[in-house]
Design a protein around this nucleic acid. Structure first.
Length: 355
DNA sequence: TATCCACCGGAATTTATGGAAG
DNA sequence: CTTCCATAAATTCCGGTGGATA
């Protein structure tokens, strides 16, 4: 049934980009000056997750711009001013060596010195950048241009200071909308063709998946894989309706599980506390904080760490929500939480002694 | 209705850690 | 070894909120 898992991996770029023609053309127009060796126009790309923003930007830079005209890179692991400048320097083809703890001003100077022809820096997940003044540093590099990729462009622009805000508002903004069902089917089909045996899954079933995942490609791809996996486990010779139906849950569960595994010990403790105390029911935020305080050192008994403050427990709860592991309700006072999947255990062991 | 109080979460500040340069 | 600069995590501070109490 499944002939190639890699086809479904998040990191795998698609063979071609579907249904982003208008967006590609618009991006190309902004980047056009680089073919004459000039600085490109800066671009703001926005839209929800999983709709091809990063994929499209990468595709355009990689395949649609002649390489001998332009250097480019994608920056997404760094969230601070110095981190972004550092990444932009070391990823520049001049291979400049620079220490990771250099002062930010110095990094900005180095970048200005090193870049002497068009250089496009893609700022992926730019809404998570802490210090947006880095945009000014980048702007002060004569031939450097920025492609910023964000979820909410209004919020992002609001965080900029007056001058930068005006600057970016004047530049081209490209909106990416959710894929329609038929568009998403076109995206799923080549993966199915290369990743599964022929006739493993019907077009109707793909349409169902595309519809269910509301235009989010990543979720759709994982759902197809999950359905195929279930079919294999159940000895079905092709994907059946029940496999598709259960595939959605499995896909979500897998995404949650990998999220949970990526979290450090502290948030895991709070997660596990909430899971064991609540068994799926809503629990007052204060109660979790109380329990955490009561248990105190015992939670960290076999670790070289101390328990953290109540405030930090609240930060953990917020983080767990971002990762879709828990839900919260009541915005102001009397906040309550519950785990999304009470069967999902954190990869740690804690003992809940007397209540 | 007026006052009180616990809680939430934003923002500023401190702490822990680590690499590089002097 | 000490100093400098960086980051991420944690703590401290505090204003807004809204139920509780008199």
């Amino acid at each position: 049934m499944i002939v190639d898992h890699w086809v479904f991996a998040d990191e795998r770029p698609p063979d071609r980009v579907f249904h982003r023609h208008a967006e590609i053309e618009q991006l190309l127009r902004s980047l056009e000056p680089v073919t004459d060796g000039d600085r490109a126009e800066d671009v703001l790309i926005y839209g929800p997750s999983g709709v091809g923003k990063t994929t499209t930007a990468k595709h355009v830079l990689k395949n649609r711009i002649p390489y001998d005209h332009t250097d480019w890179t994608i920056v997404n692991s760094s969230k601070t001013r110095a981190g972004i400048l550092h990444e932009a320097i070391i990823k520049h083809p001049t291979d400049t060596a620079v220490a990771p703890n250099t002062a930010a001003d110095e990094l900005a100077a180095t970048l200005r010195r090193v870049v002497d022809r068009p250089y496009v820096v893609i700022l992926d997940e730019a809404d998570t950048i802490r210090d947006l003044s880095v945009l000014r540093d980048l702007y002060e590099v004569p031939t450097l241009s920025v492609v910023a990729i964000v979820h909410n462009h209004r919020e992002w622009l609001a965080r900029l200071d007056q001058e930068l805000q005006e600057f970016f508002s004047m530049r081209s903004q490209i909106e990416f909308q959710r894929y329609t069902t038929t568009e998403l089917v076109d995206i799923l089909e080549p993966r199915v063709e290369h990743g599964l045996e022929p006739d493993s899954i019907t077009t109707d079933q793909l349409e169902w998946v595309a519809d269910e995942v509301a235009g989010v490609a990543r979720y759709g791809i994982q759902s197809v894989l999950a359905a195929a996996e279930l079919a294999v486990e159940r000895n079905h010779d092709r994907v059946r309706e029940v496999d598709v139906r259960d595939g959605f849950d499995r896909a979500r569960a897998k995404m949650r599980e990998s999220n949970l595994r990526s979290l450090p010990f502290g948030p895991c403790v709070v997660y596990e506390l909430l899971r064991l105390e609540g068994s799926g029911d809503w629990i007052a935020g204060t109660h979790i904080q109380d329990r955490y305080e009561d248990l105190g050192d015992r939670l960290y008994a076999d670790r070289n760490q101390d328990p953290v403050s109540r405030r930090q427990v609240r930060n953990y709860l917020e983080k767990l929500q971002e990762y879709n592991l828990i839900e919260g309700r009541n915005e102001t006072c009397w906040r309550e939480y519950r785990v999304v999947d009470s069967a999902l255990e954190a990869p740690i062991e804690i003992k809940l002694t007397v209540k």
